[in-house]
Design a binder for these strands. Structure first.
Lengths: 250, 250
DNA sequence: CTAGAACTGTGTATCACTTACACAAAACCG
DNA sequence: CGGTTTTGTGTAAGTGATACACAGTTCTAG
């Protein structure tokens, strides 16, 4: 079922070198990926069909399959390219906490720029040049901070996952608000209201108290606070790493 | 496009009360959801089609649409039920760190039990009874620890996201290994080998060094260490929270 | 310099899936 | 007991991915 992992990587890294035999290909993987990303940015992953992509490029649907084994592989390529360049620090690491924070913010921005990328099934550890560049960018400051190998990997994946998930929530909520016909104001209180209605104080005491104090309005629904929430979490992780490293030095 | 949010919640909470007019429904949302979960557990989300679900139940495809507005809604219900019951602590919170750790482990287990649930598009903040029960279970110890409202929400979502993402990685990797025809041994070194081949030391110095030391073999591909990675991240968050709370008391 | 091999773009066709729509039988209400 | 509501069903439409074969193009071997 799954494609040969070797071919998969070559597509990601080399764009699948073409042999020198037949007619010159008129398309490139680059063109295809770029156009596909544009479509997905505009209309989401659902808006991206091979037929539409081909039409947009001025070719037939099946021609695309000369460049890409299947839609899944195409999406994988899109994903890697859409990641773009991570923030690049050079030379000595000055402030590893700062570098990580910048990294988080930039990654967050990438996700917001390409919301569809959050919808893609991740199918394994990062393997493309784009994904790995982001990995590298986070590894650098953390390695300098003094983490061991396995701790490095753990931390980066942990952070990536958190950013990803928070971004997912952000676009889900803002997306739902945008397309619903209720006013923003209504949407603000809507979630909280329904919670109040359904949530049983016996079974959900902490939650009930929280909703009662309006603690959900801020970050639960308005969506304005999600990046702040992310910031808070990241700060805690960094604090935790610091105290962990400090404890190790004794 | 989106369904009325009100109906959506009623389906999740009440199972959509039936009126007393027409013929008695022979099916229940419960049966449907249970069977659907069984199918998805066995063959994944792709294996779950309305036709197959109906066949398994002994009814026609279209009959299902009397109980569920569409497949998406069904999946949402499945998701909420598959979550099951979170670990339930009662009375005073004794050790909030411990409660959180148990919570994380149990959540991790849920994801492994229902791998398909990681593939589902989350479409907003947790709203069903199952999801909210998990939310409550994490809120409780954290509230006791002394976090403010917005910090509570931030922390829980942050942790949920991290667990989710790590679980996703886990099942992706173990799944890929299971269905590939290479031996486990080969798969172990496979990822690392390809990395070595493609990764440019100039562009990815830290990564290269890491791979060179074999730092990826442990957690990157074998999959044996992912839960350990998660543990490490969670510990750091808890450490961070502790030092944050300690700093506030002064 | 030429024959054939390799490769490209295309048209057709298939298969799987969700879901709209209309209908007949069933159960309840007044 | 007539009418209304609701259920299960059959049919069919629409969409999307992709297998397969064909015709034209370009390179390479001899």
């Amino acid at each position: 079922m799954t494609t040969d992992p070797r071919k998969r990587l070559e597509l990601l890294w080399n764009g699948a070198q073409r042999p020198s035999r037949g007619p010159k290909p008129k398309l490139t993987l680059d063109q295809i990926a770029t156009t596909a990303i544009a479509i997905a940015d505009a209309d989401g992953l659902d808006g991206l069909s091979m037929q539409r992509l081909a039409a947009e490029l001025g070719y037939t649907t099946m021609s695309l399959y000369r460049y890409v084994p299947g839609k899944d592989q195409l999406v994988e390529v899109m994903l890697d390219r859409a990641a773009g360049d991570p923030p690049r620090f050079t030379g000595e690491v000055r402030d590893w906490r700062d570098e990580i924070q910048v990294w988080v913010r930039e990654l967050w921005a990438v996700y917001l720029r390409h919301p569809w990328s959050l919808r893609v099934q991740v199918s394994g550890p990062p393997s493309g040049p784009g994904q790995l560049a982001w990995f590298e960018a986070a590894l650098r400051p953390l390695a300098h901070a003094g983490l061991a190998d396995d701790e490095l990997v753990a931390t980066v994946m942990f952070l990536m996952g958190a950013v990803r998930q928070m971004a997912l929530l952000e676009i889900d909520i803002s997306g739902a608000r945008a397309q619903s016909n209720v006013t923003t104001e209504e949407a603000q209180t809507g979630y909280e209201t329904t919670l109040r209605e359904f949530v049983d104080p016996q079974r959900f005491p902490t939650l009930t108290a929280l909703v009662g104090r309006g603690g959900f309005a801020a970050s639960g629904d308005s969506g304005e606070g999600i990046d702040l929430d992310l910031d808070f979490g990241v700060q805690r992780v960094l604090d935790g790493l610091e105290s962990y490293l400090a404890a190790q030095q004794n």
